[in-house]
Design a protein around this nucleic acid. Sequence first.
DNA 1: ACCTCGACCTGCAAGC
DNA 2: TGCTTGCAGGTCGAGG
Length: 288
Amino acid sequence: MPELPEVETVRRGLAPAMEGVRVDKVEVRHRGLRWPIAKDFEKRINGQTVTSVGRRAKYLIVDLSSGDVLVMHLGMSGSFRVNDGKIAKYHHEKSKSETHDHVVFHMSNGATVTFNDPRRFGSMKLVTRAKIDEEPLLSGIGPEPLGNQFDAAMLAAACAGKKTSLKAALLDQRVVAGLGNIYVCEALFRARLSPKRQASTIADRKGQPNAHAIALVDAIKAVLHDAIKAGGSSLRDHRRADGSLGDFQHNFLVYDREGEPCPGGCKGTVKRIVQNGRSTFYCPACQK
DNA sequence: ACCTCGACCTGCAAGC
DNA sequence: TGCTTGCAGGTCGAGG
């Protein structure tokens, strides 16, 4: 479910509730996430103060005063809910089943932070800050697309020589961090590039960027900025930490719009195809 | 080394 | 009404 904009939205919701606050107790109700939560998990977290809540790609990075770092991934259906211990702002709304509340952080300020994940593709892992650069989950990840260092030259270099489709390349977290199925489709539409195009065609023979690479980088940055501004996209599971919904799903141009007229006004029709086992939505008429 | 595909899970909507 | 099927925002690891 969650791609970079959703994870960033979650991070912004968690930060004010957790930063500078001690975890009195972490309660693990179900250890069976993507990998089993380690046996020493609670012992290493209980009593520690959260020093920062960050993000790398689709990972949430929670620094603790002990020097440990909690690395968390939301998988396809993970979400966090902050209850500040006072008024349940959205408590009149039908609240999601507590069946899948797998981990609850009881904070020293009275707040609770609950991780819910029906499909359990999410993960939680403790690593030490000193060895974070050796962490296999993070070490191969490509540039942050919203960072200054991410530009057409970088993207073209990463795609040069790739035989796979441009769609598949953009989904590869080693090429660029944080994109998923929705935002790849949206960025490719905005750049008017076909998802079926060979990835290497955004670079010249020397791996230098061409006009397609420049347009694509602009499109990626723009769609991510727009989505973050909207609080991410809420299709099934994603919510802001306060329970409110993201809005960006209303701004999808092609994703899940099979059969609709091309929103670019080209008289084409949005088509759904399957690439690498995943749905791709695009306009064959104007995405070349 | 690159690339594709199955596997991991639950829930929901559509079709019969 | 129930059953079956397919699909879902991710990614790791096996196999070609």
